[in-house]
Computed example of a mutant assay.
Amino acid sequence: MPPDSPATQVTQAALIPEAAAGRRVDQALADLFPEFSRSRLTAWLKAGQITLDGTVPRPRDAVRGGEQVMLCAALEPATRSQAEPIALDILYEDAHLLVVNKPAGLVVHPGAGNPDGTLVNALLHHDPDLAVLPRAGIVHRLDKETSGALIVARTLEAHTALVEQLAAREIHRQYEAIVNGTMIAGGTVDAPLERHPVDRLRRAVREDGKPAVTHYRVRERFRAHTRLECTLETGRTHQIRVHMAHIRHPLVGDTLYGGTLRLPKAASDALVLTLRGFRRQALHAERVALAHPIHGNPIEVNAPAPADLLALAAALRADTAAHADDGR
């Protein structure tokens, strides 16, 4: 459905099961119509677009069981963004969801300064029906300069289920990162995050922030840098970037959080050129694992590392090998 099309009319009938007797109306409706979020159903209830035995109940009213439910509502487009023929690298796709490999440099959502040319515009071109879903079906974020796997729901039922999985921390997200400094071992950063008190573009570790937990493991050590595997327990904005800077190992290329150019002693011209040319945070969402939102079967999707991150790791690896005998 194109973003400028009229609302889609939804008409469904159902029967409150006897086993639901005593439950709140909104709870019973959420079980009957899992494709719609509880907030959407509540809004329709309050607008008189859902009736039980011909009357309009309050969301908190209790059901008796056996009532006839009629849902007649307008499903308005959730986005007014326009479809654009932007190429997508689709890693997984079925009727209910897809996983795309977002390139670095692509903004996810339209906003101030980026009204078009975003992932949302590309998704609407790929599947116009995404216009009725919140954020065109996108259930989590990646920063503009972070590459990798991003999950997109294609139906209301899938969107509701995926948002619930995300809130319950049941979606596994794994990242590859290259940070400044040589790390001895992996660990966990458990530090709450909130907006920076002065710079509104940044996030900061703050005692009054929201809980944020990042686990990291060393994959490869270089002379003055480390390649990490990071997994998230929470998904706060800029979480890995802020947490790595917090432990004094900011991501290579992340000038917002202190990832300024750092060179090993006697670095080759080739390495200097590679490091100077890497102009984004060295972060890639390499893997997502989740239960399918409809049938529950496990899904694991891997996003291959982009060429710039591979080239950076290769240059650091070559530099480390060239200086393997230093100091012996």
Rank of each mutant, 00 (worst) to 15 (best):
A78D: 11
L97S: 08
G48P: 05
R202D: 07
F222H: 01
E194I: 12
E300M: 12
R173I: 10
L162D: 03
S39Q: 13
E176L: 14
H109T: 12
Y216R: 06
G48V: 00
G296C: 05
L290K: 05
T260C: 12
G22N: 04
R135M: 04
R169G: 10
E93A: 13
H172K: 14
A270Q: 14
A95R: 03
L91E: 07
P298I: 05
A161G: 11
K210H: 05
E207T: 15
Q27P: 11
T155C: 09
V272F: 10
T214I: 01
F36I: 07
D61C: 06
T155E: 09
A19S: 14
L162S: 04
R24V: 06
H196M: 05
V56D: 03
V99R: 12
D319P: 00
R219Q: 10
V139F: 10
R202A: 11
A47T: 03
E157K: 13
L290Y: 11
G65H: 08
R154M: 06
M244W: 03
G54P: 05
M183Y: 00
R280H: 07
E229L: 13
A83Y: 03
G186Q: 07
H140L: 01
D325Y: 13
T182K: 10
D143G: 08
I86K: 03
L41P: 02
D127H: 10
H243V: 04
R169K: 13
S37E: 08
Y92V: 02
R23P: 10
A224C: 06
I86C: 01
L150N: 07
V189W: 12
A149S: 02
G277Q: 05
I299L: 14
V301C: 01
L232G: 00
L283G: 00
N180S: 15
D326F: 11
R280S: 11
L312G: 04
E164D: 13
G327K: 08
T146H: 01
A131I: 12
D208H: 03
R248N: 13
V272H: 13
V272D: 02
I86Q: 08
L275T: 06
V252M: 02
R60L: 14
T188Q: 09
S268E: 12
R227V: 01
N121H: 06
V107F: 07
V179E: 06
L29D: 12
V163H: 07
N297L: 15
L256R: 08
N101S: 14
G209T: 00
H243T: 10
D94F: 06
R200M: 09
V10Q: 08
W44R: 04
L261F: 01
T274C: 13
L283C: 07
L162I: 05
Q82I: 13
A204T: 01
Q12P: 12
T42I: 14
E194Y: 12
C72K: 13
L45A: 08
I151C: 09
G111M: 01
G65S: 04
Q9T: 15
R279C: 14
D143C: 06
H249F: 09
T11A: 14
V100E: 09
G277K: 00
A285T: 00
A321T: 11
A313W: 03
T231Y: 03
Q239S: 05
H292R: 12
F278D: 02
T118P: 00
F222K: 01
L88A: 06
V139H: 02
E170W: 11
G258L: 08
R60C: 05
P17K: 09
A267S: 06
V56M: 04
L166F: 04
V108I: 00
V218R: 03
V107Q: 11
L166E: 07
L98W: 09
N302I: 15
A7M: 13
